[in-house]
Design a protein around this nucleic acid. Sequence first.
DNA 1: CTGCATAAA
Length: 750
Amino acid sequence: MRQNKKIKFDEDGEIKEISGRIKTSRYGSFASKSKSTRRDYNHDSKQSSRREDKVVSHKPKTVRLDSEDDQNSDDDENHKLSRSDYLKMQMKARTLLVDRKKLPIYKAKNRLIPRIISSKVSIVIGETGSGKSTQVPQFLMKKVNGGIAVTQPRRVAAINLATRVAEEYGCPLGHEVGYSVRFSNVTSKKTKLRYLTDGMLLREMMLDPMMSKYSTIIVDEAHERTILTDLILGFLKGLILGKRKDDSDFRVIVMSATLDAEKFSQFFENAPIYYIEGRLFPVKRLYLQRSADDIIDDMVKAIIQVNQGERTGDILCFLPGQEDIDKVTSLLEKLAPELPKDAPLMVPLPLYAALPPHQQMKVFEKVKPRQRKVILSTNIAETSVTVPGIRYVIDSGLRKVKVWRHELGLSTLLTVPISKASAAQRTGRAGREAPGKCFRLYREKDYLKLCENTEPEILRSEIVSPVLMLKRLNVDDILGWYWIESPGKESLFSALRQLYSLNALSDSGSITSLGQKMVVLPVAPHLASVLIQAKEYGVLDPVVDIVSCLSVDNLLLTPSSEKRDEINIKRRDTCTLGSRYGDLLMLKELYDIYNGFSDVGECKHWCREIGVSYRGFRNVLRIRKQIASYMENIGGRSTHSQSDINDDIDDIDYSKPVDPSLILKSFLKGFITNSAIGMPDRSYRTVTTGDTISIHPSSLLFGKKVDAILYIEHVYTMKGYARNVSAIELEWLQEVAPHLLGSRISIQND
DNA sequence: CTGCATAAA
């Protein structure tokens, strides 16, 4: 194995040397299998490059994404069409029809649609590019009475599909075809076909369990098996067997991209399965001949090899997390200019969710000729972000996954091998526009050992919120419910216990009026209970601010290692309450400062300096508005609210000092079990199990010693960490939960 | 004493 020898350059760390040797060993480390993942359909046709769900390439058209208000365009007078506009749309629709007719699904239309209409449940398997998400709903529009709902796991997908289908149909978005996602409802009375997120449909179910406005519900991307999709499937089964059993004008269609349709079919009592071919180009798969030892090193080597050995086309690399991505990015930045000039200059581009939006957008920008984009991505590029122009995929075969341990009451973040289905999905990313190649940084025999499918989310998550939803729909027998996959007795009981201790469930196990309020709030039940408690303490306003901050992911950016200390110091200097009381109060302070800016430029500058997301805070404002209005709706006004003095809820008196102890006590009410007591040896022990827990380095309280702490999240990585930590007093614990103490106090006295 | 994958209401 002469070639194999050449790839073993781990011993010398000299970077230049590596590049020199790689040049001669053209994919020596890969065993070519020359198998294509998917069959190849008419890729000689030019038009075939249009794909069903080029989610991101449609982005410029999705103006609505940033629309601020949640206005329902119910007023038909609002969008009177001029005759010429209407004709233009019809013309456009007619030209689009030419392309539509080339989609694989078009051929099956006449056989498929009547069968779907006449059966209660159908399973439609359509691989990427089949056109199922855009075409099946349109075909049904003309044939069925009542509304059609199509659910999507992601907002952008719902918006882009609706935008596309409205064009094809020839109507303005929001007329016959519309969409409904959080903060943006573009539908009207005449809307017949509605694309919505899973979460949106579930909300509708909470409000109208009969789903009376729909005759047809299409659950798309069911193979992803998100918690929300699983819940929808269970509820729909209940509907079909229950209240809408005899409704001949009600049907469910489950759409999936992978071949594991049997499970869905069995779940729905052997519903018929229909297969529609996809339209991906062939992708050649190549495996590493040895097993990878250092994934970062192997990734860098493979990237350089592909860049020097392969023709034009961008490279997409899958790595488990931010840390690996940043390392590879900076290595490539140093290496790229030094490499032989006969290969394109590599432009490394990181891609992960925590990246600020403007940096994420860079993957869509064009590079100069003789340059090649190398995108280093987490799983985000597997489904959520589609980058055009990718011809080569390099797959580490790894991903990070959060696993909830109900028996320990904490979650762990693990790096694990992906499934075969996931490997296929990653591979397919190279075949969207032309034939491609996928370099897998693992051996074929390791590939064969992978699980067929990724474990459904519901099996490894905390399910407090799902169980509360079931209770809202009056499900008595939680264990025997229509779980497509049951999370298990232990996990269910743990959720029931937590809901009970939050007073969301009564002694008999049915939902309480408090639980009814909690289920409609767009936050986890624990936080919902905090909000309700805050109202009683008269600190609703500041707590809504803080909860809104907690609802936005990546509001606090994780700074690069060089800037880390600098930003931490800045945060401590800026937030006096935060330094004393912890991260919850810090969020409140940051929020107030953010709102104090009159100049946008200054505000953005400040955000960068202190390591927070400008866009994130804009989302905080939207969420704050939504939560505040829900809180108004569910309970009337509280008797001794601070805002009594101010009648206008939008006009908060910032001069009034907030009371940190009442704020923190509100949080303690929802997170009693997430508290720990300081030990003499500077460690902390949880009140529930007595396990040691450390304050996460991202916390303002990191390195501080306080009597007791309250934390929003407990994660186990290298060790047990408390994330988002606040300082509390021992008396508060005794006040709120005396039963949890006692034994722990004695440890401290020892 | 030192660091989180993704998505949704």
